[in-house]
Design a protein around this nucleic acid. Structure first.
Lengths: 360, 360
DNA sequence: CGTTACAATGCATGCGAATGCAAACCAATC
DNA sequence: GATTGGTTTGCATTCGCATGCATTGTAACG
């Protein structure tokens, strides 16, 4: 008869020991193992294991019988035990930061879809700040994940520590300067160029920029590319203010741009859509300006609310779905074949004309 | 000398075998185990184990030495192996559906924060549709999660199967009719009553409702409570149209309300904020009405964009943070003590007056 | 110094499934 | 019926760590 380990409650809990409650629970306490099934079916444990492995060496008859019995007994293979011996957890760590933004949830959703298509589960690490990453990384290691998708900043050392442990990492929409890493990004430079070109063609000459935090590689790329393109057109004076990628930053940003020069710019290029929305609202409700007649506002990302009738933001939409797909392909390839060299995939964004800017 | 299993690439992969690439990798291939550390430190494996267990029986001197050596060797305890023997994975499954909505990402974010505060990791199951839950549940079982947080519909049978395996489940903002389950919800009934009372007090008499999908328990509660309260006031004629909780549904909803009766209602009660926003936009841009002068619009949830200046939705904000906290407390209690009876916690929402409705 | 009590350590085992190897089985062929 | 080749099956071991138990070390006390 199988021994039954009686679940113990930590002694620190309910110290004034309550009289043991009779749990009105359906019998079947201990989890059913492959041994249990084997015994019941009169076969060996290994046979049971093989019956659950696709392509495992087992006759059709046995396969069917064992599976039926397993079903009856409520047996489910233990993925933890399997991982231990196969050295594959089928777990992918996703490191992500601002779930309260509008962009990342979409990313996460797509990543999740594609991950399960590849037979991988997602171990989520949602960082409140992009700060305490180190502790998190330790957790990631402990769980023997097959790979890591990083949608947050990682330091060189952190990337290095994954490499040492042979855990492939793919960055999402960011990368590391001077270190070859796997990454899938949307082409910010190209997107910025398109926006600026169309804005310039519409006759705009005075540009302001509402940038994101300095430590955002993507945000900085957008800003730099915008300014670079403007310089090509001979526009040298570009006012830049900074914010934190959120609505309030966008709103405050425009007011600050107003204070910076005598006249407001004709265009506000915002480092993302949410800031663009904040900026539009500042224009309308704080400064009583019409958008796009008095001020053109553009953003980046193409998040859901940017299409709302109230704002219809002119923006560069990221192909988040295809980016997620590429991310997983890249990662799964590296998991299957650790020797593959680092690779970046840059996907083009798509201009959404919206109605928050006059384009030429 | 430790044998070294050479990583094998599944034969099904890159069939036209590429010549083995010389991996320019830093040495240290196989993962470092507690045995390795033990040998290096000249102690037993169990000693190493105890040095990493808080409160484990080990002298301060050894603890320090072992930890230092472990650090040097790049040792990280294997959570998978640990889980196998302790029968605690420190994994919590979170079942969630619409990550592209505005509400659930916030929920997920809060759940994640509180989970890590309890030393648990989140295994994320983001369902594209609320459909293929059964396969997902199987995965949840396989990973031996300590508990489940369900922010999706589960059938009676599904709940039952968790119970059979002694995996505690806590529902988030939903529950199961007629079956006692653990759940944390926001008080929809009370919220609806407050909204209606204030709207009625402002003199509104003609009410329309833009409901969510029929299969959403929360959505239906909001609608029923709204109508019930109106009935108490003697308002019997309430037009109801349905949508899918998204922006377009809200927008379409108002237009449909317009067609349903000769006159538009004075109030549109929407089953969530995003629909309220769509409804406001329909009023302004499709029907050229002023909000709230010509039409009062209210929603539920208090998601981020509902506070944007452009909409300032009058709504009942859910205390998502405290709900997440309660969810984890409830769950952790059940994990520690499986005998605890099912429990519901209903937290009150908070009226955000906004400016999308005239209140009395 | 001997005895006791407790802390620190090692040994051996087990968690549940996967897998190399050998044994058993089966069918086809000579 | 014996031989061969292939398929099924079982046995034994392994993955990395935790833990009960026995043993050793250390300190305190009489």
């Amino acid at each position: 008869m199988p021994r039954r380990k009686n679940r113990r409650v930590p002694d620190t809990f309910n110290a004034p020991a309550v009289a043991p409650i009779a749990v009105p629970d359906s019998g079947a306490r201990h989890p059913v193992t492959s041994h249990d099934v084997a015994r019941r079916a009169g076969v060996s444990q290994s046979a049971v294991s093989r019956c659950f492995k696709p392509g495992g060496s087992a006759s059709a008859k046995m396969r069917e019988r064992v599976r039926r019995i397993a079903e009856e007994m409520g047996y489910t293979p233990n993925a933890i035990a399997r991982s231990l011996i196969t050295r594959r957890s089928n777990l992918i760590a996703v490191l992500i930061s601002n779930l309260t933004s509008l962009y990342y949830p979409e990313v996460l959703s797509e990543l999740s879809n594609h991950a399960s298509a590849h037979g991988e589960r997602i171990l989520l690490f949602a960082l409140p700040q992009e700060s305490d990453v180190d502790q998190t990384i330790d957790q990631v290691m402990q769980y023997q994940v097959d790979g890591v998708i990083a949608a947050v900043r990682l330091s060189r050392e952190q990337v290095e520590s994954f490499k040492r442990r042979n855990i492939p990492v793919v960055f999402f929409n960011r990368y590391l300067q001077d270190v070859p890493v796997n990454a899938v990004c949307c082409d910010q430079v190209d997107g910025a160029r398109i926006l600026v070109s169309r804005l310039y063609a519409a006759g705009h000459r005075r540009f302001g920029v509402i940038a994101g935090p300095k430590d955002s590689v993507v945000g900085e790329e957008r800003v730099h590319a915008t300014i670079a393109r403007l310089n090509e057109y001979g526009v040298r004076q570009v006012q830049v203010v900074r914010g934190g990628f959120d609505y309030e930053s966008g709103r405050r940003g425009l007011r600050e741009l107003g204070k910076l020069a005598q006249r407001l710019p004709q265009v506000a290029v915002c480092a993302n859509d949410v800031m663009a929305i904040g900026c539009i609202d500042a224009a309308r409700y704080d400064l009583k300006l019409r958008v796009p007649e008095d001020l053109s506002v553009v953003g980046f990302d193409g998040v859901g609310p940017s299409t709302w009738e109230s704002h219809r933001v002119t923006t560069i939409r990221q192909p988040v779905g295809r980016m997620a797909e590429a991310t997983l392909t890249l990662l799964m390839d590296r998991i299957a074949n650790p020797g593959l060299p680092p690779e970046k995939r840059i996907l083009a964004g798509q201009l959404i004309e919206g109605k928050s800017a006059r384009l030429g």
